[in-house]
Design a protein around this nucleic acid. Structure first.
Lengths: 346, 346
DNA sequence: CTTTTTTAGTTTAACGTTAAAGTTGATTCT
DNA sequence: AGAATCAACTTTAACGTTAAACTAAAAAAG
């Protein structure tokens, strides 16, 4: 691989290595004809600058790390793609790592990213007071959070984040159920140590208040963002509650799918016996037979946005002091799972 | 980041940099007590070896590249996860790149991987006679193909690959349809320039022969591996063919979902009016209301396998000459989309 | 026409690590 | 006891690139 070095080119043309370097990097101090000669020869010889030598002197890797929980969660692929595309535009490559929700491995990964010399990190799905954040601060590694923000106002002011407008998304979803006349609504919440779940819950609670809907405590289930846990939680609600809820607000489409399976298992029809709303609009939510009413978010855009914030910050030291907290707007997508079809939708 | 160098440690302990390096890398020539002292101080100072300096002298990056078409295709996340996990076990990190089916960007990506000094590449979904392969050979970059193999016997002998046993998988699927009594079967084939599609088609064709089923030419559609194209292809078949096929063999679950939507749009019920088989068993194939009969494959295992082959090859030059072509076994998963439920399945 | 400035270079050193060759002084062998 | 071996180091150089300081000649300025 890349065996041709700057020195080889220099030797052939009887110039110094520095001149070659300057010529190829568009720096001044090289004559017009010599520059062209050098560039042509470099191309002809298939010269590729050595990444390690460059990194050693510049202390830049032009690589960023993207740390997610698990790429097999349908929430992430589109996000990862957005990050990679935007990073690619700036000439950065992306290293993707899965923590599998494991705190320890998250720290190991971050340390490794540091050792590999990435220029910055995009960190998804951190918890409040996550030690990963302190670690990154300590390493003086630039980073941007995505899909979670730090709510603690003391920290929040200097931590960049790109998140959904979870409050208004969840408010929209809850309002939709209330408007359809539901008054017995259960909320299957994601991990309540996550900013998304906290904010989504408060959006729903406020909507319920506005509509005068009150909900028993045991219909708020803090169950963790997985299909299986949502299945179990829903099962419990269906068997233990009389009267049963007529609607369920799941804070995530995967969880909604879990609820759906539990509902079918309990002999309930959707939407006839149970209205169901999800959150995320993963690709499969639109399939015939599923047709989940949900809150759409543009993960691709989220990915692009956080990559852009990070890289601009890397490239422009002036931006270092500024703090970006971007809220991505959501959209209510009405399908069939709540039993209300808008005009033109069949 | 990683500001502590070997020299800092050396200076503090009045030894040479080489001794520190040797002590930390477990090499001989360092006294027991000195070694311990060095290791302790290194830990205390938070020493992290500089990746670029190491790479510059060792010419190893401990990074591999994984080139796929698009991570948002549900086929890939599990594969990517498997690659990363296995690579991680060996201390390698993975750089993921999406070609978006674009030949040119694939070549750009491979060149960039070369420039970034990855030690090897896992390349998915190449075409027969793909220029990417020549490029990798020319760069003398070790690589393993996954999900495709090169059928041309002149080349095949020295190209590692990990693929499904597509022939027998497709044979199983076709046999299943024939055994259920179908004789009017259409095949929606993926891109016929891909080894998977070629092999899957030949497995199906052989099964049809064995059952004496003959199929008109226009019921073999070479349509490209996407849901949308499969939708269009199926639509055409439903409207143009009389009598209509009673079963469709889709060479991919996404395509099967496209066929499913087209069938519903044409007023056909599944399985009553149309039996449908997919291929891959993506996670959504099992959802209630979809319940697609399909061929399961273990992408995670595929990912692990190809990462292992690549890295073992990187680490052991003796293996360089050997060629691995691993076939991963498939399994027929019978759900409801063909109208036959085995015992215990409701 | 001398002095200053500019252009087009060169030389040196540094980034952090490690391989290779050299230097001690102690230990073992005969 | 003297030679050979060994252990525990050190010194030097190299990996490929670039920043910084230098030089020589040409061009511009006075």
């Amino acid at each position: 691989m890349s065996r041709v070095t700057i020195k080889d080119i220099a030797r052939k043309l009887n110039v110094s290595a520095t001149t070659v370097s300057n010529a190829l990097n568009g720096k001044p101090g090289v004559g017009k004809s010599a520059r062209k000669e050098i560039q042509d020869l470099a191309r002809a010889m298939g010269y590729q600058p050595n990444y390690f030598a460059k990194g050693l002197v510049s202390r830049q890797s032009y690589a960023i790390g993207l740390v997610i929980t698990n790429i097999t969660d349908p929430f992430y692929p589109e996000l990862a793609l957005g990050v990679q595309e935007k990073a690619g535009e700036f000439g950065y490559s992306t290293m993707l790592f899965n923590t599998n929700h494991n705190q320890e491995s998250q720290e190991t990964i971050i340390r490794m990213l540091g050792a590999k010399g990435v220029d910055g990190v995009i960190l998804s799905t951190v918890r409040q007071d996550d030690p990963a954040i302190d670690l990154l601060d300590e390493m003086e590694m630039p980073y941007v959070l995505v899909n979670r923000m730090i709510l603690n106002p003391r920290k929040a002011g200097h931590i960049d984040s790109v998140t959904l407008d979870n409050y208004s998304g969840s408010h929209q979803a809850a309002t939709h159920l209330c408007r359809l006349g539901h008054t017995r609504i259960a909320v299957i919440a994601g991990d309540m140590d996550a900013s998304t779940a906290i904010t989504r819950t408060s959006g729903a609670v406020d909507a319920f208040k506005e509509w005068g809907v009150s909900i028993p405590d045991n219909w708020f289930v803090d169950c963790g963002y997985t299909k299986d846990r949502a299945f179990t939680a829903a099962q419990k609600i269906f068997t233990c509650s009389a009267p049963r809820p007529t609607a369920i607000l799941a804070q995530d489409d995967n969880m909604a799918l879990g609820v759906r399976e539990a509902a079918y298992a309990a002999g309930l029809r959707i939407p006839e016996d149970l209205a169901l709303v999800g959150f995320n609009d993963i690709s499969f939510a639109s399939l015939i037979g599923i047709e989940l009413t949900t809150i759409r978010q543009d993960q691709h855009h989220m990915g692009m946005t956080c990559a852009e914030i990070l890289i601009k910050k890397l490239q422009d030291p002036k931006r270092r002091g500024l703090c970006n907290n971007v809220l991505i707007q959501t959209e209510l997508v009405i399908r069939k799972s709540c039993g209300f079809y808008p005009d033109g939708y069949t």
